[in-house]
């Protein structure tokens, strides 16, 4: 029974992390139909920036709690700089081309950023562990969990709710939904579509960086850390139905719980648990859990 409980707790903690990591990808795809491979690099950039800024903050003896602010600030910075740079500097020249071409463009960006990170920060690992341990830990179901996990859970909830609110309750959100449905028609109606693309991509980049920045305290920040994240984020987004916020949440939850169950009860299958989930879901829901119906073209 206790084992079951800790399976669920571990699963939920992992899911909250997965959701933060995947939501930016699904947002960008939902609006712009771009599978952004550079998502992994933005995640890594967020982590590196966080390790540098928070490290600087703590090294100068500022109040330790402020290091959480530094984590958030680094995500915002990475998003505000890299988002417009990639979208205005490259992607906008390619709109209207095949999805695969756009995907390859982002892959090229990924390759360039991987080496750029190496040139800036070197190949040695960075770590910024203080924010992880500072909050202490709680005992639950006979096991000790760091409070930081609860913080992650809260962040993912805030991100999810905030995005849902913006999309459904604000005027800009409603306009964005119009852009998603038919960008050409929206442009005709006077909506400034390019601006929506710019904002979406920037927010998506920022979310990737949020994932990296808040992961940084619990891992060692190393070159290549973004690679694994790409495929995880893809899988979660596809399971949920690309572009669906609800889907990303549910997809993250499913993958998280299945992986946790595998670790607890059947460590042998952990390696491909996520892909098994993906195959099973796609078998029964060929377009993911939540997919928007497409207009039939004749």
């Amino acid at each position: 029974m206790i084992e079951l409980l800790s399976t669920v707790v571990d699963g939920i903690i992992y899911s909250s992390w997965l959701f933060i990591v995947a939501v930016g990808l699904t947002l960008i795809y939902g609006v712009m139909k771009i599978l952004n491979i550079a998502h992994g690099s933005l995640y890594a950039l967020g982590a590196y920036m966080a390790a540098s800024l928070a490290g600087y903050w703590l090294a100068h003896g500022y109040p330790p709690l402020g290091s959480y602010g530094m984590l958030a600030l680094s995500a915002v910075l990475v998003g505000l700089v890299m988002g417009p740079l990639i979208e205005r500097g490259l992607l906008r020249f390619m709109y209207g081309k095949d999805e695969v071409v756009l995907l390859l463009a982002t892959y090229s960006v990924f390759l360039i950023l991987e080496d750029a990170i190496k040139l800036i920060w070197g190949v040695d690992s960075l770590s910024i562990a203080e924010p992880y341990g500072m909050l202490g830990s709680v005992d639950f179901a006979g096991l000790t969990y760091p409070v930081y996990s609860v913080l992650l859970l809260a962040i993912s909830a805030v991100v999810g709710v905030a995005l849902a609110w913006v999309l459904q309750r604000t005027r800009q959100g409603k306009l964005l939904i119009a852009v998603i449905h038919d960008s050409e028609m929206s442009a005709v109606m006077g909506i400034r579509v390019p601006r929506f693309y710019l904002v979406t991509f920037t927010v998506g980049a920022m979310l990737a960086a949020v994932g990296g920045a808040f992961t940084a305290p619990m891992v060692s920040v190393v070159p290549g850390m973004g690679v694994e994240v790409i495929v995880l984020a893809f899988a979660v987004a596809v399971i949920g139905g690309l572009g669906s916020l609800k889907g990303a949440a549910l997809g993250a939850l499913m993958v998280g719980l299945v992986r946790s169950a595998a670790v607890h009860f059947l460590p042998q299958v952990e390696l491909f648990s996520i892909y098994l989930v993906m195959v099973l879901v796609l078998l029964f829901r060929p377009k993911g859990l939540f997919s928007s119906a497409e207009a039939r073209k004749i």
Binding site: V227, E270, L271
Partner: peptide
């Protein structure tokens, strides 16, 4: 008692640590 095999560079060991703890 248990042999955990994690994916290379996965970076997230929450569940594995729970299993090892118990």
């Amino acid at each position: 008692v248990t042999s955990q095999m994690t994916k290379l560079m996965s970076g997230q060991f929450g569940a594995e640590i729970s299993v090892l703890l118990s």
